[in-house]
């Protein structure tokens, strides 16, 4: 499903060259729940951004659903992100000016779909994360855990095959973190959605099917 081969990622400024990832080789099969662990600055988020097509590798090849990504244009990448990927961020990144329902509809705005269909799908996604009663609330009216559930609803509303979660429990207390983890586990087991999750928490990493460990940009396990 996802294949990274000999991936290097180098960030260059006028004076400094930083090797963020070096020689990453990774295969993630459909339906896997993979966690990525490592100390701060080891390249976890960089790796997730590459898999999420938000960034491009400096060298190496990235294959998603059998399709080579290298050389794809911005438009093609945007379409692939819209159709195949869903994102959950540590700080939720909900649009504060929009209601919960409007936030969840965002990925569907970039598809050919009627407003009624968008609404139907968004309501179904919110129902799935247990927030059907909060659709007209604004993000600031919700707890952190509820906001992250909205973010998960937004990530799954377009029925992506892969969900990428960047420390989804990082800003939550352990109880809420558990709640979010359970939703992700259910997504993985029931829908066979592939999940790649960056985490610092061993407890959550243990609940995934495999853990990839990074250190100084290198894959160590």
């Amino acid at each position: 499903m996802i294949t990274l081969k000999d991936i290097d990622k180098v960030y260059r400024t006028e004076r400094v060259e930083t090797l963020a990832l070096h020689n990453i080789n990774l295969d993630i099969a459909q339906g896997e729940f993979v966690s990525i662990m490592g100390p701060s600055g080891c390249g976890k988020s960089t790796l997730l951004n590459l898999v999420g097509l938000l960034d491009k590798p400096t060298t190496g090849t990235l294959t998603l659903d059998g399709q080579k990504i290298n050389g794809a244009g911005d438009k093609a990448l945007a379409r692939m992100r819209n159709e195949k990927l869903g994102f959950v961020f540590q700080s939720f990144h909900l649009v504060p000016d929009l209601t919960v329902l409007d936030n969840v509809e965002i990925p569907l705005l970039y598809r050919r779909m009627t407003a009624a269909d968008r609404r139907k799908h968004a309501l179904a996604a919110l129902d799935r994360v247990g927030l059907a009663s909060r659709v007209h609330h604004f993000p600031t009216q919700l707890s952190g855990g509820q906001q992250q559930r909205v973010a998960i609803a937004r990530a799954i509303v377009g029925k992506p095959t892969i969900v990428l979660a960047d420390e989804p429990t990082g800003n939550l207390d352990s109880a809420m973190g558990d709640e979010i983890m359970s939703i992700l586990e259910e997504l993985n087991s029931k829908d066979q959605t592939t999940i790649v999750m960056v985490t610092h928490d061993d407890r959550f990493a243990e609940r995934t099917s495999r853990t990839v460990r990074l250190f100084d940009g290198r894959q160590v396990a």
Binding site: G52, L54, D74, K75, A78, R79, M80, R81, N82, E83, L85, G86, F87, F89, S91, H93, V95, I106, P107, L109, Y110, R154, G158
Partner: peptide, 16 residues
Amino acid sequence: SPEIGVRKAFGAPRRA
């Protein structure tokens, strides 16, 4: 900026 990032992540083309 974060809103723009989110929209891009979820597939908003530049034109949109």
